[in-house]
């Protein structure tokens, strides 16, 4: 991901526009791109969603099956999330096992969903200590134009909201919707020079020095954060990111429905 070079002339152009609070695609600094969600797009999955965030596209699928609980949580279901940056999505993505960028992506999305308690894992117990529902969420980048974090979050959350526990398939009673309690939403800001912008596209992401992803719950409380990138952020910048995460998170939550 870091191998790509953005030309000097493009960098200068983006930074010059930002001085006037403008961006190449006409957005303001705190505007997010258009979101479209196609939930339930894959019938073979127990829950799925294909999400477009501008030109960035991510698909997430949920598979649910009976399995053995962890010994320390004998009456809780298991939630596992993975992400792959496949070569289809961008010329800089290579095939092979997930690298550090993919692992970070999966873990940041996982943290927001897990810590918000979105999936009520207590309700996923079939027989205490013996059998619980295991819920696997797999995310694939399909088209990469920046901000995979928020696109993947929306895809995973939408897929989980559409998910059905396939109890009949495994002879465990009737199918029922996956118990979800809330809608965690992440909002990612990046720093370019001394400007903070929301929902960066590819070029903006490439020339940014630092990134901050903030996940909020329905009440606007903070559930997960991750700073990335080689640069730093000040406390004032952090404060601005938090304000925007609450405000824009609310708007995205309404789009998810």
């Amino acid at each position: 991901m870091s191998e790509h070079v953005v030309s000097e002339i493009k960098r200068d152009h983006i930074m010059k526009l930002l001085k006037d609070g403008r961006r190449e695609d006409g957005r303001g600094v705190d505007d997010i791109r258009k979101i479209s969600i196609d939930a339930g797009c894959v019938e073979s999955a127990d829950g799925s969603a294909r999400v477009k965030l501008g030109r960035t596209e991510v698909i997430a699928g949920v598979k649910i099956m009976p399995g053995t609980p962890f010994p320390d949580t004998p009456n809780s279901g298991v939630l596992t999330m993975g992400a792959e940056l496949i070569p289809m999505a961008h010329s800089t993505f290579e095939s092979g096992p997930p690298g550090e960028d993919a692992i970070e992506l999966a873990r940041v999305v996982d943290r927001g969903i897990r810590e918000s308690g979105m999936v009520d894992v207590k309700q996923l117990c079939i027989k205490e200590g013996e059998e619980v529902w295991m819920c696997f969420v797999d995310m694939y980048a399909l088209d990469y134009d920046g901000n995979l974090f928020d696109a993947a979050n929306i895809a995973a959350v939408s897929a989980l909201r559409s998910a059905v526990i396939p109890a009949e398939q495994y002879g465990r009673g009737e199918n029922k919707p996956l118990p979800v309690t809330c809608t965690p939403v992440s909002v990612t800001s990046v720093k370019i020079g001394n400007d903070l912008i929301l929902d960066p596209n590819f070029d903006e992401e490439m020339i940014s020095s630092a990134r901050l992803t903030v996940t909020t719950d329905d009440e606007g409380n903070f559930r997960a954060m991750q700073k990335g990138g080689r640069g730093s952020i000040t406390r004032d910048e952090l404060s601005l990111c938090l304000d925007r995460a609450v405000e824009k998170g609310k708007a995205i939550r309404e789009i998810i429905g």
Partner: peptide, 16 residues
């Protein structure tokens, strides 16, 4: 020396 943040993570549940 500058009070810049270079690593920040958060998980759990917190108000502002």
């Amino acid at each position: 020396s500058t009070d810049e943040i270079v690593l920040l993570q958060m998980d759990g549940n917190m108000t502002r």
